[in-house]
């Protein structure tokens, strides 16, 4: 069974994930976690973070007093998240669960959450999977609850898209070589959120038009 590239290197990737994402985001990732958290987290609010990874958004929400559930398929990432939670917060109210985004309906009843968040996880999903997860997220939200997705997106102008690729190539290569972490832009995010039935969908662009925070709401009267 092959080991160099796939195991000896990737295996310890969770421990290097934070470093890789910090580098790829040009040092802005921590502020993005905070921006997502400030939109949804308040004492007692129930927040679900889909694809929580090493717990960036989940911990930012917990620090604001929210009751957080962080799900991820990677036990290594969750283990790093648990360690970080124990180090940073005195009594974090976070449940870390090894669960796929497509398995949410098996675990949580409709209306279980006041907010659903996801940061740099939707870009890991196929278009089919994004549609599926958005439909499930809508059901899991309490009426009036909000969805906030933060992810890399392709810039709107073609020239900017080309320039972004060129500019990032050395950073992406070096980051992958050192940390085996990479990210991919996801197109049509706001449209996908609207198509899933969310109301009041707003897309805020950050960085060089290559990062977006998309928010939406489950309409209060929705069943």
């Amino acid at each position: 069974m092959s080991t160099y590239v796939y195991m000896k290197v990737l295996e310890s990737a969770p421990e290097r994930y934070d470093r890789g994402i910090h580098r790829l985001s040009g040092g802005t990732i921590a502020s993005i976690y905070e921006r997502v958290a400030e939109r949804v987290a308040a004492p007692g609010r129930r927040v679900l973070d889909v694809g929580c990874g090493t717990g960036g958004v989940a911990l930012a929400c917990a620090a604001r007093g929210a009751r957080v559930v962080g799900i991820d398929v990677n036990p290594g990432m969750l283990s790093v998240a648990r360690d970080k939670a124990a180090r940073r917060l005195p009594a974090p109210d976070v449940d870390w669960i090894e669960l796929g985004a497509m398995e949410l309906e098996d675990r949580f009843a409709p209306g279980s959450f006041d907010a659903v968040t996801s940061c740099l996880a939707f870009s890991e999903l196929s278009p089919d999977e994004r549609r599926y997860v958005l439909r499930v997220a809508l059901r899991l939200l309490h009426p009036g609850g909000s969805l906030v997705i933060a992810d890399e997106v392709p810039p709107r102008r073609r020239a900017a898209r080309v320039w972004r690729r060129v500019r990032r190539l050395p950073v992406v290569f070096m980051t992958w070589a050192l940390t085996q972490t990479s990210t991919h832009p996801v197109g049509g995010l706001a449209d996908a959120v609207r198509a899933a039935g969310f109301a009041d969908v707003v897309e805020e662009r950050l960085g060089r038009d290559d990062f977006a925070i998309v928010s939406g709401r489950r309409a209060a009267g929705a069943s």
Binding site: M1, Y6, M7, E11, V73, P75, A101, M102, E103, E129
Partner: peptide
């Protein structure tokens, strides 16, 4: 599969 990148989570998904 050996590296944990193809598991039942991916099959269910």
């Amino acid at each position: 599969a050996g590296g944990g990148h193809l598991t039942h989570h991916d099959v269910i998904a």
